[in-house]
Design a protein around this nucleic acid. Sequence first.
DNA 1: CGATATAATTGGAACGTTCCAAATTTGTCA
DNA 2: TGACAAATTTGGAACGTTCCAATTATATCG
Lengths: 347, 347
Amino acid sequence: MNRSRTTVVDIAHAAGVSKSTVSLVLQGSPLVNEKTREKVNSVIADLGYVYNRGAANLRQSRSKIVGIVVNDLTNSFFAELAVGMDMVVQSAGYVQFLAHSGESVDRQREVIASMRENGIAGLILSPARGTEAADLKPLIDSGIPVVIVVRNLPGAKVSTLLSDNYTGAKAAVRHLISLGHSRIGFMGGFLDTAVFAERLRGYRDALQEAGLAVDEALIIHSAPSRAGGVAAVERMMLLADRATAALCLNDAVAFGVCDGLRSVGIEPGKGFGVIGFDDVIEAKTAVPALTTVSVDPQGMGQRAAQLLLKQINAGGSEQESLVTSVRLVVRQSCGAPVKNNHLEKMA
Amino acid sequence: MNRSRTTVVDIAHAAGVSKSTVSLVLQGSPLVNEKTREKVNSVIADLGYVYNRGAANLRQSRSKIVGIVVNDLTNSFFAELAVGMDMVVQSAGYVQFLAHSGESVDRQREVIASMRENGIAGLILSPARGTEAADLKPLIDSGIPVVIVVRNLPGAKVSTLLSDNYTGAKAAVRHLISLGHSRIGFMGGFLDTAVFAERLRGYRDALQEAGLAVDEALIIHSAPSRAGGVAAVERMMLLADRATAALCLNDAVAFGVCDGLRSVGIEPGKGFGVIGFDDVIEAKTAVPALTTVSVDPQGMGQRAAQLLLKQINAGGSEQESLVTSVRLVVRQSCGAPVKNNHLEKMA
DNA sequence: CGATATAATTGGAACGTTCCAAATTTGTCA
DNA sequence: TGACAAATTTGGAACGTTCCAATTATATCG
């Protein structure tokens, strides 16, 4: 393998033009004559030239790379979010560094540093638990656009894309109340994320609005995962005065709650109303189909990526904060009668 | 923002040394005096210098970037695979381009081309359906190490890391037979992937070995997803002579099969034995807990990444093909009695 | 046809690093 | 102290592109 990489100069030489002309062709400039463009392009194909974007980045001091850091890729909500981003990033001619912080702020710091060294044009971050606004300061000061998604990061001067957790949770609890429930639990999650706080607030307000007391014993903390949902049910079973329905922090918890209920002989959607949050792809096909607050993670990923790209192109760093609206999707797990579930299953 | 990026030259100037010395410090060379090293490092910290890896890559004509392309990130098997890779890639000081091909060979071609332009040091690919060995030819010829994972790509001269699909499927079916089943189905998947072919072969051989006839009607093709599993059950219900148990192409299908069974009033693990494949993270906590062939996707991702890094460092492109062994994890969904499921649930 | 406008092309200097060969400083020993 | 070795430092040329100003070819017009 002693033949070194073919470069613009090689192309230029073979096509009988200057490297500047080749560069113009590469950039699709209208300045170059149609004849020579064809010539150059054919030589490029012949020699199997591959463009060195790194060299271009160096000269132009900007890149076509965006960084994406999510806190937990194994959670399908985030996986879908990532896929949504991937779609718009790719079709805008960018590539993405995608990293998984696993809820570790240290890891998160490392990968962001590494991405900076590699010259990202912008960053989309779903912050790990415990991330501080100050952690992003150097990045932002250096003029790199940042978009925060899913979890709020109060105090950070960046664009943000969140879902309307408060309204969604409120709507879900209202629905349970309208079905006749009065002892409604809130399951999953810990105090340290903004998402948790917002959804819990929606839960509280919906209860108060209906004149129902909030029983703190029915707010059951647990890991925001399927296993956490199972654990939450186990803890609820120890209570004397149990709930008859619950809003769960997210769909993963909700599935876990269904599992947990079954293993104590309660059929979710019959003996107990369960509502999730996120509308993960499996929510629709699960049995019972999960009533949940739909956030459309892929769509949200797309919007986040669009927001970032807009910001990269604008150059100006005017921050923008969007709240995407959510809607309650009523399926079986809440116990509501549903006319024709086949319609939705097939959708 | 008129102050441009600080560079080694700025550091050198501020520290009263030459840029070469700064470069040496940056690389941790033992040639430089301890005193000056400290001086330089402190200046680096003061000025908030960020290393430009792109420029270094240009000069050295090698990079610390690996490309990872998976066919479906929304499938949690692949998401976990990606997380496993991420772990070793990150701790080796590399970053990863991670892209999702969505089973489209066109998309796959595009992202691989884009990654090449961006100068990846190696590629890990879980090929989209329909990928040909020839598609990778140019990449391989250019001397970039490639590791194929999960799905075989016959004819490609690259390293490969597959799981032992044949043996795993065989073991699963043997287990069902030992539980007394004689009409065993195979659900999910299409003919066009090597994975499907291998698992199906294991299924066939296990049946024949036991002297049981293979009924083609019980091999039910469907999308390799949860929805596909539901559909497979619906189709099976139309048969006169139904199966009493099934091996599913993967866990996603198996979950769908459980859903489908429930919606026709059959309890998975009781009236019907279900075995999955992959041992996705939820398999353990699902109800009933899924009996499945464990592939340890994270571990597999780690091994794949290690294999790639080894190959990058060796330079020499001697290909290596590994088959990771699998083991049957017996839980509830197959109907086998399990002593103490709490032990495993808590693990 | 000469003059001028327009289209197309082109050298060379950047971009921020690494690496080599060469230069300089420091240490050691007779 | 002088000679030599070892340790440390250093210019400058690369890497493959883009961009600017300047040049050359081609078209247009009176």
